[in-house]
Design a protein around this nucleic acid. Structure first.
Lengths: 336, 336
DNA sequence: CCGGGCTGAGAGAGCGCTCTCACAGCAGAG
DNA sequence: CTCTGCTGTGAGAGCGCTCTCTCAGCCCGG
């Protein structure tokens, strides 16, 4: 087991075990057609030398790398401030890849030349497949890779036409439950703080709000933020200017909801007595706001896992559905 | 540029450009000793065929992989709940690696068999170097890899003896500034909520508290948490039982400080009038607590970057210092 | 005008593995 | 006893690249 620089090769194992390289390769890769005594001898030699296969040599011939790329195309600040969205995605993806014994290569397109780097790296087939998290607007790269026959799965329904399989959550269903809850609890002036309208998550959540409101006689009152706390605070201020008498607000993200709560506090509104607040995400932190936030829970960890599972299926040559949509649910706490 | 399955090889480029494989290799790798006209011809052929070098083939001969592993050895929940510590580390590491055109392979040891996977993968030299983030207790793996000559840098001063270079922040200095601030503002009964005592971050922050208090005539009042919000809330309750008259508390992490604030509120204490609270971390979220949290800022993003830089130096064969310690600073807000 | 030195290009070996193909050895059938 | 048909093992050819070594061609000095 003691290794000093010189790593043992298949050749060395073969020599020690008194067999050919091919046979060692068979044993290492678990081929069933090796007689038991020989298999045991090889195993012993492997153990004794501390042999570990050379991945580069293996990839060279198998054309597999046993690693997959997770591309985070968001702007730097968004990806890793205190928004736990991407960390959860990473975590979920990692869990499934670990189980499949694949490596996770993390790539960001937010740095200088990041996009080109990702393009070069992925088209070069340095990975067996590529996962895209939450694309903004219309990103041509996933489709491009897909057309080149590289396994790709994206998170979030892509804007525009796309043949790339995706995994998303039921934004609209979740939002409708939230708005319905506000209606059912007697709120009459229900506003919304929407997310960025170049992202499906932003668009769908606004659509859900409008759709559920349409059934009632309430009019919609809309402000737009960018999913950050600051934008939520600003949007809330705007909404109160537009309609000082509003008594409820559905906010398209928890972080924005926190911002909105801060603003409501500053302007002397009680929550939920004067204004009911519902968020979207169910981040951990939302259980600790004052008051605890009623919100729409989306299963982010599960989203990451499903993403990885779909990709592994594509890589394995299985057929996968064009889309998988995970359920969302309303979590009622004190804010609404 | 259009590729259909068959990826062009060096050979193909060489043929098209009318030169040898060796020459194409030289051009691709930027060797200076190729005549300009030939260099141009090769460039053109590369462009035309959309040639991208095969990483596996290259690694096979160079023994380099141009990728490094970042190992997150924390427990699953800790790594990716709403604690932005690891995301920031990842972000910082990623920035530097991108700049150096290296790939980031993320590994977690929290899953079943995770530790073995990391051990196998890293000792197999599938990566050029390994970064360990925040090891708990005494992890033998970094030292083991180091002894095998694999470039390693760890985040956080290791417990016990270790020859592995590390990057850490000045916990003690930061804490002393925090406690001094409490003393200077006339607090007389200053308690602390310490972090886990099997982690250097937990130990050092408690040491700093004790060291600064020793100079005054105040006695120490200590409770221990595990860096989570919940543990902070519980520890605060404990402290108030131990000394109902305490008028300040230094909390060893922002998340625990949030928990402590919640408890203080519930028990009717005003912040900072009755009890001053100082945290440690300066997470984004701490600007938005009520009241905004006075805390010790540690440069986590920079920690990640420095980690990567040191590792790249080791890989490059440069000498690196046994340790790099980044400064911490007190950020005074409303809570103390 | 010839030879030495230098520069730039090519030939070829080999990195460590997988996988096809050939074949040895043996069982069972004729 | 020979022949067929297995099963299990070995030989050997690459996978696509880098890098050393060799050599062709040119410049310049003697």
């Amino acid at each position: 087991m003691s290794e000093r620089g010189e790593r043992p090769t298949l050749e060395a194992v073969a020599r020690l075990a008194g067999v050919s390289r091919a046979t060692v390769s068979r044993v290492v890769n678990g081929s069933p057609k090796v007689a038991e005594p020989i298999r045991a001898a090889v195993r012993r030699a492997v153990e004794e030398l501390g042999y570990i296969p050379n991945a580069a040599a293996r990839s060279l011939v198998t054309q597999r790398t046993d690693s997959i790329a997770l591309v985070l195309p968001e702007s730097a600040s968004r990806v890793f401030s205190d928004d736990p969205f991407f960390p959860s995605i990473i975590h979920g993806v990692s869990q499934e890849l670990d189980a499949a014994d694949k490596q996770l290569v993390l790539m960001m397109t937010n740095t200088v030349g990041g996009y080109e780097r990702v393009e070069r790296y992925t088209t070069a087939r340095h990975v067996d497949g590529v996962l895209f998290a939450s694309t903004h607007g219309v990103d041509p790269l996933p489709g491009q890779l897909h057309r080149q026959g590289i396994p790709v799965v994206v998170s979030g329904r892509p804007l525009g036409r796309s043949a790339v399989p995706y995994v998303d959550v039921d934004h609209i269903g979740g939002v409708r439950k939230a708005v319905r809850h506000l209606l059912d609890t007697g709120r009459s002036r229900i506003a919304t703080i929407a997310g960025p309208q170049d992202m499906v998550a932003g668009i769908d959540r606004l659509d859900g709000y409008r759709a559920e409101l349409k059934g009632s006689d309430r009019r919609s009152i809309v402000a737009v933020g960018d999913f950050t706390r600051e934008s939520g605070a600003a949007a809330m201020r705007q909404l109160l200017e537009d309609d000082p008498l509003l008594d409820a607000v559905f906010v398209a993200s928890d972080l924005m909801a926190h911002g909105a709560i801060t603003t409501l506090r500053e302007l002397g509104r009680r929550i939920p007595e004067d204004v009911a607040v519902v968020g979207f995400d169910d981040f951990d932190i939302s259980r600790f706001t004052d008051p605890p936030l009623t919100t729409v829970r989306q299963p982010i960890l599960e989203l990451g896992r499903e993403l990885a599972r779909q990709l592994l299926r594509v890589i394995g040559g299985e057929e996968v559905p064009a889309s998988v949509v995970l359920p969302t649910e309303l979590v009622v706490r004190a804010s609404a």
